[in-house]
């Protein structure tokens, strides 16, 4: 993994990387990815990608059950006012 790839991944993950991290991360990640690569030895063709024991989706009834304690949600917001969560202006 080179630094361009690292930067692309960091951008996708919305992680700012410090200069120190830019130096350290590629090496550590490469080591881990090399270890992970041993999976390639296994032939998995035709093998389902889920466990046999995984069940089926249960469906909920369409009946309203409001939470009610809105302040418990808004109280954790770094910036909340006039009924809205606020963020830096989005420019489209």
């Amino acid at each position: 993994m080179d630094i361009t790839q690292i930067e692309k991944i960091a951008e996708l993950a919305r992680l700012h990387l410090t200069e120190k991290e830019k130096k350290e991360i590629p090496e550590k990640l490469t080591e881990i990815l090399e270890y992970i690569d041993q999976l390639k030895e296994l032939d998995t063709s035709g093998v389902p990608a889920e466990l046999e024991q995984s069940g089926n989706l249960r469906l909920a009834e369409d009946i309203v059950d409001e939470f009610g304690k809105i302040e418990a949600l808004t109280g954790n917001a770094p910036d909340f006012g006039d009924g809205f969560f606020r963020v830096k202006k989005i420019i489209e």
Partner: peptide, 30 residues
């Protein structure tokens, strides 16, 4: 199971699940 409603006061039909609080899980509406 928050109400699916158009035009209410902002952030009044919300719960831990639809505001993406840590630890919540989705349950599908039949």
């Amino acid at each position: 199971r928050c109400r699916n409603l158009f035009g209410a006061q902002p952030n009044t039909h919300v719960c831990p699940v639809c505001t993406g609080q840590p630890g919540v899980l989705p349950v599908a509406n039949g």
